[in-house]
Amino acid sequence: MQDGVLTTAGVLFGLSGAVSDRKQVILAALASSAAGALSMAAGAYLGTRAEAEVLQGEIERTREQAQERPYIVQEGLLRELAKEGLGREAAYRVVKLLSESPRALLSTAEQKMYGYGGGAMGNAALDGLVMGVAFVVGALVPLVPFFLIPSKDAGLAAALATTALALFTVGYFQGWLAHSEQRWRCGVRFVTIAIGAAVVGYLIGLAISPLGASAG
């Protein structure tokens, strides 16, 4: 979500420095948000799908091996358990016990050897949809106040405030999820980085605005 907030805020502030017409800024920010959302959704979809295909291939290979040559899977699992600190003999006995149920052996091997935890394989369409919607929701945070307030400068100030508030909330929530005792600091860090990006964007816009004037 913060990608949508940051990208759109960056476009708003950057273009506001370069372009005087408020409508052009809104149109460009809308186009940037749509392109960003589609790009993020497509990236998430393709990434999850590629990862799932590779993982699925590995799992199918493991299942074939488990049927034809179970000792290959058993040895692979034994090595993974040994890497985690279990002695070789103890790891052997654990794998041998698991081998009493081919299903238990296979599911444990899949988890340990390929990090696949049953239903944990990603849903590409859902990942893409979530990523795209999250980007749009994030983009609306700076865009809505800028759109609703007729004054360009007042709109920018409101966009800056909602962006800072949204990012602070995301940072604070992240700190809460991580059980961090410095949740406020996490929030402030998010805001600092965002405002820094916005200011830099605005300054770049100001710097390149003469190019736009000469081209027009």
Binding site: P70, Y71, I72, Q74, E75, L78, R88, E89, A91, Y92, V95
Partner: peptide, 10 residues
């Protein structure tokens, strides 16, 4: 290579 493996016992 090792005692307690699943390839060596064969």
């Amino acid at each position: 290579p090792h005692d307690f493996s699943f390839v060596c016992p064969t």
